[in-house]
Simulated assay, not measured.
Amino acid sequence: MADEIQAAPEGTPVFQIQRMYLKDLSLEQPNAPHILLEQQQPQVDINLALSAENVTDGIFEVCVTATVNTKVGDKTLFLVEAKQAGIFEIRNVPQDQVEGILGIVCPQMVYPYLRAIVSDVCTRAGFPPVLLTEVNFQAMFEAQQAQRAAQGGQAVN
């Protein structure tokens, strides 16, 4: 089977997933066991972050991080932070398209793994699963591009 895989001809655009992996995971229950006896409905705050790094020529790491902070009143019930990453090979693609691939396509591939991990960790910690909603990475990317353009426009004036 390895004989069937051939290198792309020189100059041909290449996009390949090299690896998906869980880069970091933490779960904290700082107020257990007493807070587990509370009957109030917890407040759930979810934050997502995205990063992309050029590892070496044509190889990029894209990470999507979810931070789930669940509180009862002003005390933390549990805190989960998970960072799911992927290594992608991107070659012979125009730079303006590479940004879109790193900001839209790669996170869309990484995110389902992150959603499953967060849900599973919450369940294994003894809580109902936290289901991360679907994310429109294209809209996020376009908003970031617009914000950059606005900041660039203000800096020029």
Rank of each mutant, 00 (worst) to 15 (best):
S51L: 06
L37R: 02
E4I: 13
F15K: 04
P30G: 06
I90S: 02
A7S: 10
L48Q: 05
E53R: 12
D57Q: 13
F60S: 02
E4P: 00
F15H: 06
A52P: 00
K23L: 09
F78S: 01
E28N: 10
I17C: 03
L79A: 05
M20F: 15
I35Y: 07
E10H: 06
H34L: 12
L36T: 02
V14Y: 03
C63H: 08
L50N: 11
T76R: 04
L22D: 07
A82R: 00
A8T: 04
D96R: 07
L27W: 05
F78V: 00
L27I: 10
K71L: 07
K23N: 09
R91K: 15
E38D: 15
H34G: 06
G58P: 02
A66R: 01
E81H: 01
V68S: 12
V62G: 11
P33N: 09
I59K: 14
M20V: 00
A52I: 00
L77F: 03
P13L: 07
L22P: 03
G58H: 12
I90V: 15
A32R: 10
Q18I: 11
A66S: 14
M20K: 11
Q43I: 08
C63E: 14
Q41I: 01
Q40S: 11
T76W: 00
Q39H: 08
C63Y: 01
A85F: 01
D24N: 11
V44N: 08
R19N: 14
I35K: 10
G11F: 04
A85W: 02
T70L: 04
S26F: 02
N92S: 14
D24T: 04
V68A: 15
A85N: 05
Q6I: 09
V64H: 12
K71Q: 12
R19Y: 03
M20A: 01
E38W: 09
N31D: 14
V68P: 00
A82V: 15
C63V: 15
A8R: 05
L37A: 15
L25Y: 01
A85I: 04
E10I: 07
C63K: 13
S26L: 02
T65A: 14
E99Q: 12
L48I: 02
N54R: 14
E81G: 03
R19W: 02
Q43R: 11
P13C: 03
P42S: 03
Q29R: 08
N54C: 10
E38V: 06
F15R: 03
V72M: 04
P30M: 08
Q95L: 08
I17Y: 05
Q43E: 15
P13N: 06
L36P: 01
I87P: 00
G100S: 13
T70F: 06
E61Y: 09
K75A: 13
D24G: 02
D96P: 00
L50M: 03
D57V: 04
L77D: 03
Q84L: 02
P30Y: 12
P42C: 02
L37E: 08
V72N: 03
V72Y: 01
V62M: 07
N54G: 08
E53T: 13
F60A: 06
S26H: 07
V98R: 04
N69K: 15
P94N: 06
L25R: 00
G73P: 01
G100A: 09
I5N: 10
I5L: 15
I46K: 13
P13D: 06
G103I: 01
V68Y: 02
T12V: 12
V98P: 03
I90F: 13
V93I: 15
T70Q: 14
K75P: 00
P94R: 11
T70H: 05
V93Q: 14
I46E: 10
G103C: 05
A49H: 07
